[in-house]
Structures are given as C-alpha cells and as structure tokens.
Amino acid sequence: MVFSCVLRFLIFILTIKFSASLICYQCDDIWVTTTNLKLPTNCVRMNVNKTYCAMTIVFNNNINGYVQITSENGHQAYHYDEDFVLLGLTMRSDGSFTYGLTYHCLADGCNEPSLKKIQLLFDSTTIEHNIKTILRLLYIRTPERPLPCSKYTNCTDPNTCYQPKEINVVCSRCFTTINGITNAICAHCLENVKPIFDILDDERAYLLKAKTTKNHHYEVYCNMPECNRLDKIQQIQKLHRYDFDYDRFMGKSISSLLLSNKNIIYFHLFILCIWNIL
C-alpha cells in the first residue's frame, strides 16, 4: 500500500514536470545606458515551448544598450540543466566592442521583470579588456598577401578543420576557434577577401548551482602573420578578463527561491500521502 502511494506520487510529480510548459515573462525590449537601467514594457506572463526563461543585458562600447526579457532554447544542446549566466564579449577591427550577459533559468516566472534583479545581474558582472593592445596583435589595415597562418587541430579527424592535403591556398585572414564544450581546437586560414569586422568573440557560461565556469566558445579572426598561433591566442586571453560574483547574485536569486518553494510543496504532498495511509 505504501509502495503504491509512493509510486502514484512519483508519477504525479513526473507528469507535472514533463507535461507542463514553462511559464516565462515576455516583454518589449527597452534601450538603456550603463548608468540608467530601466524595466522593459508591455510584459506578459505566458506558457512557452522553450527550455529557459531569459533575462538579457547588452551594451555597446560601455555607452548604450538594451534589456530583453524573453525565453529561449538555443543553449539546450550544451546540456546546461541548471540556471546559468552566459557572458559574451565581441571586439571589432574598428576598435568598437559589444558585451552582454544572459541569465537563463528553469523555474516558472523566474525572469519576472524587476529593476532590482536587473541591476543585481549587471552589478554581479565584471568585464575588463585592453582592446587597443589586442588590436595591435590581431589586425592591420594593409595585411600581407598571401598571409602566413598557423595550421593546427587537435581533432582526431583533421578534415573537421581543414583538408590535410590542401595546395595553392592563398590566405587572406587567419582564424582560431575553440569549442569550450568539447575543447576542440581549429586553427587555419580563409581565402575570403572580405574585410575583417569581428576580430574576437569570447563566450563563457557560469553555472549557478555548481558555481563553475565553462568556456562556452572562443573565436579569433586576424590578418597579421601567424596571429592565430596558440601561444598568441593565450597571450590575447590574458588581456581581457571576465568575472561573475556567484554569491552576490545567488543571495537574492528569485529562481532559487521559486525552486525551493516547489520542493517544499512536493515534500508536503509526500508527507500527506504517508499520513493518510497510517
């Protein structure tokens, strides 16, 4: 009898978990500055067929940007089965840059619009960089043609990066990409003569429950001789820094409180079931 009740209870919990869609807030984007964050407008709470509720802040050149409250499933392929913050930094050949952070959460209503939480998310994040020095290592207005580039991959099958027997390849720009999930590295060159715009893209995921950092994705495009060598990439990585204060953000995380409340409800249902049997 006890086993039957416990089994019914587990089935009930699993039914709730897998049949109910996620409830997220969806709002119109709103333009902000680093010194004047604002709440998005026209917010609605709705069922969505997505993996995460999300709260995003993006800034251009530390001047202006936008706040976005929405939902998404774009990062489910990376198997982050907990709340996380994704930080990204993009640098461009004209000296401009963009950085952004997206809070992904799994509980119903966890991205509820709150100016206090938006400010807390922003204040918990530090991104520092020396773009002028990085530019000197990666980009020049009149590059060599053909451009000598490093050619390297740690993949078992090099064809996933380049053709081992390539001949007569005239490089116009070099690149290195690092997949932070698989740690796969690909360094080679492109024959495309289009001008370089984005020279660096760095994304890192901060898992809030485990309090661990994942190198999500790293990519460099450059047009100086051997600028994509791994030792140079490592040198560049030291010229910009990310930091996310887990304790500062999680101390007031609405999502963790909601999840805790759900667990308490399930626990009480279980106790009630046992009590009725006795």
Rank of each mutant, 00 (worst) to 15 (best):
residue 106 L to K: 12
residue 107 A to K: 11
residue 109 G to F: 02
residue 110 C to G: 05
residue 110 C to D: 01
residue 111 N to S: 06
residue 115 L to F: 07
residue 116 K to F: 13
residue 116 K to R: 15
residue 116 K to A: 13
residue 118 I to T: 07
residue 120 L to P: 03
residue 121 L to N: 10
residue 122 F to Y: 15
residue 122 F to P: 09
residue 123 D to W: 09
residue 123 D to P: 12
residue 123 D to V: 06
residue 125 T to C: 11
residue 126 T to W: 09
residue 126 T to F: 14
residue 130 N to R: 08
residue 133 T to I: 07
residue 133 T to V: 08
residue 133 T to Q: 11
residue 138 L to S: 07
residue 138 L to C: 03
residue 139 Y to F: 13
residue 140 I to H: 09
residue 141 R to T: 13
residue 141 R to K: 15
residue 144 E to K: 15
residue 144 E to Y: 12
residue 147 L to V: 06
residue 147 L to Y: 03
residue 147 L to S: 01
residue 148 P to Q: 03
residue 148 P to Y: 04
residue 148 P to E: 04
residue 151 K to V: 11
residue 153 T to A: 04
residue 154 N to Y: 08
residue 155 C to R: 15
residue 155 C to E: 15
residue 155 C to N: 13
residue 156 T to F: 14
residue 156 T to K: 14
residue 157 D to R: 09
residue 159 N to P: 06
residue 159 N to I: 10
residue 160 T to P: 12
residue 161 C to D: 05
residue 161 C to L: 02
residue 162 Y to T: 05
residue 162 Y to R: 06
residue 164 P to K: 03
residue 165 K to V: 08
residue 167 I to H: 14
residue 167 I to T: 15
residue 167 I to E: 15
residue 168 N to L: 08
residue 170 V to W: 11
residue 170 V to A: 10
residue 171 C to S: 08
residue 174 C to N: 00
residue 174 C to H: 00
residue 174 C to K: 00
residue 175 F to A: 05
residue 176 T to I: 11
residue 176 T to E: 04
residue 177 T to R: 10
residue 178 I to N: 02
residue 178 I to Y: 03
residue 180 G to F: 04
residue 180 G to M: 02
residue 180 G to K: 03
residue 182 T to L: 04
residue 183 N to K: 12
residue 184 A to L: 14
residue 186 C to R: 05
residue 187 A to R: 01
residue 187 A to M: 02
residue 189 C to H: 02
residue 189 C to Y: 03
residue 189 C to V: 06
residue 190 L to V: 07
residue 190 L to R: 08
residue 191 E to A: 12
residue 192 N to W: 04
residue 193 V to G: 11
residue 193 V to K: 15
residue 195 P to F: 06
residue 196 I to M: 02
residue 197 F to L: 13
residue 198 D to F: 07
residue 198 D to T: 13
residue 198 D to G: 10
residue 199 I to L: 00
residue 199 I to Y: 00
residue 200 L to Y: 02
residue 201 D to M: 12
residue 203 E to Q: 14
residue 204 R to A: 11
residue 204 R to C: 06
residue 205 A to T: 08
residue 205 A to I: 05
residue 206 Y to S: 06
residue 207 L to F: 06
residue 207 L to R: 12
residue 209 K to T: 14
residue 211 K to I: 05
residue 212 T to A: 10
residue 215 N to H: 13
residue 216 H to T: 03
residue 216 H to K: 06
residue 217 H to A: 13
residue 218 Y to A: 03
residue 218 Y to I: 00
residue 218 Y to C: 01
residue 219 E to C: 08
residue 220 V to H: 00
residue 220 V to Q: 01
residue 221 Y to D: 07
residue 222 C to V: 00
residue 223 N to M: 01
residue 224 M to A: 09
residue 224 M to I: 11
residue 225 P to V: 01
residue 228 N to K: 01
residue 228 N to G: 02
residue 229 R to K: 11
residue 229 R to T: 09
residue 231 D to T: 09
residue 232 K to W: 03
residue 232 K to R: 12
residue 232 K to C: 00
residue 232 K to H: 05
residue 233 I to V: 12
residue 234 Q to N: 12
residue 234 Q to L: 10
residue 234 Q to M: 09
